[in-house]
Write a protein that binds this DNA or RNA. Sequence first.
RNA 1: GGCCCCGUCGUCUAGCCCGGUCCAGGACACCGCCCUUUCACGGCGGCGACGCGGGUUCAAAUCCCGCCGGGGUCACCA
Length: 490
Amino acid sequence: MVKKPVRVRFAPAPTGYLHVGGARTALFNYLFARRHKGTFVLRVEDTDPARSSEEFYASIVEALRWLGLEWEEGPEVGGKYGPYRQSERRAVYDEALTRMQEAGTAYECFCTPEELEARREEMRAAGEAPRYDGRCAELSPEARAGLRAQGREPCLRFRMAAGADLAYDDLIRGRVEIKAAELDDFVIARPDGSPTYNFVCAVDDAAMAISHVIRGEDHISNTPRQIAVYRALGADLPLFAHVPLLLGPDKSRLSKRHGAKSVLEYREEGYLPEAFVNFLALLGWSYDDEREFFSLKELTKHFSLERVAKKGAVFDVEKLTWMNGTYLRKLSPEELFERARPWLEAANLFAWDDEAAVEVARRALALEHEKIKTLAEAPSLIDFFFAEHVTYDEKAEKNLRKLPGGVDMLRDLAEVCAALDDFSAAALEKRIRALAEERDLGAGKIIHAMRAALTGRAVGPSLFDLAALLGQERVVRRLAEATAVFKKPG
RNA sequence: GGCCCCGUCGUCUAGCCCGGUCCAGGACACCGCCCUUUCACGGCGGCGACGCGGGUUCAAAUCCCGCCGGGGUCACCA
């Protein structure tokens, strides 16, 4: 038997932003396609005009691109199975609908949503599973005409084969069996003719020659219906793989109420797409018991559905943040600066046409390289280099006050700094340490207070590096200004 | 509630299919120590799990049964 070419699809509905769960599903599809030299298709499931929006569509496309998940076929790039937006495929569905009506696998149902809900409620009350009772399944043409005369507009239902159990082999879960009793005739088109999800999904997967359907496990219960549609269409079944859901801290499906953000929000918060993708891949998939760093490219080499877990995974931002930090540390100082640039620009710390200032920023960020965890932190890490006057935080003020000798020592420090011919970090360190020696003090005493005076903070880069970058003039000035702290009561 | 799925450290997971090498390995977080002018990075160490109960077996995280727990789904949404 000839193996069919691998074709997978990610099929989001543009009813919201791309969230992390969707992103992971997209990633798994992408990886699977690449791994098997197949095709990754993007299909937009916008059959519900009331809930779909262009804004969401655009943001999903942008998010996928940010992650680097390029699709070979889909909106924006085209492909021979297009169009790839279901709102543009109405003709395809209409044709299938007509064929199925003619074949008798679809029939008109005149029940109203209200009537159906009432009957479902009765069934629930009676302890039965609420399902469609087949009331309109065998309506005669005359009966239908009568109902129409009453002003009723029919929807179309799919006729499930009576008494037929269904089963399929899930690539992740193994064999899944569904009893016929659990299946009912479901709506495939609304009275206005617009088709519904289970129908279009199967029609398109068949039409687009999708070989593997990789999606969230919340779709397991849809699978039998879609299989039934496939059969009615006379199409070969794809293979199904249902990946576990992403969970919130309370173990229920990750959602907005857990504070789940859209993918693009993570971008805004300064996460690197390469770190984000790496982290996402590890949520439900593993390589072995050791390795956890993978580039997108490496993932495409190693990914396999066999190593996808069955258990849902909790999205742990802390680990993401740690991983982001390690990725940030792998960048060269220049790359780090360039990638932090959007955040730096937004913070408006200095004029970008001032080359000297840009250079200071570049070097300042380099001094914080080992500490930065997200790009969004960049501005606050270096802003004191550009502040007109230093404002001291609580801890800094405390460190300043602890300086032995107080104001006098601060003045001496300023004097010493002003007298230095060579204001390099090395020369500065030598001089400051010598001063500490002269006064019979631990160098740390001076260093801590001086850092506070120069930066307004108790934490920061190496004092001597920072001071050298700040420049002699500003160092002397800030040391002088810091004497004000001692004049305040405290 | 019916049906379906899942169940190893707080979290992500390796191990389970092919029982012994697992008094369960790695990572994040946390704690301690080291490095060090602070923070951080890095290094070292610690804390910490096989949901419970039966059974099979010389031997069970691994196989079987039951229970419990969690989740998903039951639309003219996708």
